[in-house]
Design a protein around this nucleic acid. Structure first.
Lengths: 344, 344
DNA sequence: GTGAAAGCGCTAACAC
DNA sequence: GTGTTAGCGCTTTCAC
């Protein structure tokens, strides 16, 4: 621990060979069995660990890939991560995950630092995307694939889903099972998902001939369950007077679960008094009590596709930007079961 | 994207200075304002990003720290991660998270690769620790601090908790609130936490003068909610005949939540028919319905302490191994509320 | 099969 | 204040 770390020269010396031979022996290149044996022994004896930095500098790659997300606490990212990890490691790479703040400049920062030297490629799923970030990503010295919707004209590998349509699925389901007055708890509108889902909700209401009522939408401070509880307190509180909501669509599972939490606290029964539908269909949805009906946005599949895209670009840098889109679908669970004696 | 990446020499050339001056200008060392200006401009124009690999090789450090866990899906690690991240970034380092498999050799592998070149230090919280891993950790070329219990005699910085006593807290609480027959759902016994908690349970039963009944303990396949559900199916199923359990202690929150899931599926009411207590007091415990009574093991504090220890060792490599222990405490929520008409 | 030597991109003496 | 140069630890031609 205190002695200077052994380098290749120490190993070579101990083995009585040149450092070139030592390197070859260790890396399985052409070398006599005898040399290999002696070098191996020397390396073990010295507890030699090759310096990855030096190796990467010489080789020009690190065999590491990075996945950057805004909030590791969100299970949707965990699911993506698992999917990414499995394809990436099959491709011989190791995965590092980093958590950026919500700030785009912080994200851009991370991209810069990661992309030059510490990783051979990057998958990023940012909540907020501005032009500066797109520029940074496009100019990054290593391939970047983004999970999420990009501004028009950005030429980057990307995998996205149609969360607008996803919200539509939720609304249609609720209407179809007898709900009449649907509230919407969204995340911040300056985020990409927040924006799409907002449009999706308006669209769905319109399509179903329902008048949008201003007070039926509440914007949470972020995509966490705490913010969901907070927002639900507002939304539900407002409706104590103005007439009852009988359903809420939440922009993700965390918000949905926060909403249920608050609804129960208010003495509302879920789903009897209030149906709740989330989005992302994370493990949380399955686990929760009651089970949370949720719109799957194919997080695992998006992760898998993103990883595939990245690997492909790594081996074939020249080709044009790909764009894959994963369709949403609804997973029905207890939180949106039809109200018992439907009052229609 | 396709042109060769600009290096310092390109920048220096464009700016019309030597590469040494360029380096100095960029790094805020002594340089004339005029030089700084020209170099800055050139760098921006070329979209120059310094190569971290080369820089690290020269400097001998990366300003990166790593946190390795077995299962990123467990919220307890998310909490540790947040805590670690905040102290580490205050110290000027960036945090990388890697997910190792459950396998100790895989973990050792990761340590090897991480510890030579990609990170200046490492925090690791492994479920399983064997001698080979301890040896690897001790010999690692960069400082390592482990969150968790080490075998006797290992000289590594470590922060631990007393989860044995933690289980005792849970048992005592349940007994105190009128429960009589307590089951235990543990994780694998070949893991460090599994082992401690097993001992803790036996100890607590003994201390309270309760005869341990073999069938009252069930070992889940791992520390996930799915495994918890599975184990609960076993445990609860067994007791359909042999007489009712009125409480379950689970070795972590995930197992606890899986247990509740299964209990409800069986038509048991929680807490009326069955009280459930988890461990780790993660955000999940607070969020769940009903709220999950849980033994806090101070995950955030453990993370914070681990990060502090690592930073200290980084600046002061010589000193002896530290060892800090964080005390557990109970957080009572709805899942263990006294049964209504207690049948005693 | 093996050794000598060049060089990956950068920083830090060291001279000027 | 600036340029020249050595060298971080490694891999890889290139001769032998």
């Amino acid at each position: 621990m205190s002695s200077p770390r052994p380098t290749l020269v120490a190993v070579a010396e101990l083995a009585g060979v040149s450092i070139a031979s030592a390197s070859r022996a260790l890396n399985g290149m052409t070398a006599s069995p005898r040399t290999v044996e002696r070098v191996r022994r020397a390396a073990r004896e010295l507890n030699y660990i090759p310096d990855a930095t030096a190796r990467s500098l010489k080789l020009g790659h690190t065999l590491q890939l990075a996945f950057a997300v805004d909030d590791v606490g969100n299970p949707v990212y965990v699911e993506m991560m698992r999917a990414i990890e499995s394809v990436v490691s099959a491709g011989g790479y190791r995965l590092q995950v980093s958590s950026t703040g919500a700030d785009t400049s912080e994200t851009a920062d991370l991209v810069r630092s990661l992309s030059r030297g510490y990783a051979d490629g990057l998958i990023i799923s940012p909540l907020r995307i501005d032009d500066a970030l797109v520029k940074e990503l496009t100019q990054a010295p290593v391939p970047v694939v983004v999970i999420g919707k990009l501004p028009e004209g950005a030429s980057l590998d990307t995998v996205m889903t149609d969360s607008r349509a996803g919200v539509g699925l939720a609304v249609k389901h609720l209407l179809g099972s007898g709900r009449r007055r649907i509230g919407f708890i969204n995340g911040p509108l300056d985020t990409t998902p927040g924006k799409s889902r907002s449009e999706g909700f308006d669209e769905a209401m319109l399509a179903n001939g329902i008048e949008r009522i201003a007070g039926d939408v509440e914007i949470a401070a972020d995509f966490t369950s705490e913010a969901g509880t907070e927002a639900a307190r507002e939304l539900l509180g407002r409706h104590l007077d103005s007439g009852p909501l009988d359903a809420v669509v939440a922009a993700n599972d965390l918000l949905a679960v926060g909403t249920i939490h608050e609804a129960l606290r208010c003495g509302l029964r879920v789903p009897e008094d209030l149906a709740v539908v989330g989005m992302d269909d994370t493990s949380l949805a399955e686990l929760f009590n009651p089970g949370l009906t949720s719109v799957s946005l194919g997080s695992a599949e998006r992760g898998r596709e993103a990883a595939r895209l990245l690997l492909e670009r790594l081996t074939e840098p020249g080709r044009g930007a790909s764009r894959v889109v994963v369709d949403p679908f609804l997973v029905v669970r207890g939180s949106s079961a039809p109200a018992h004696g439907g009052d229609l």
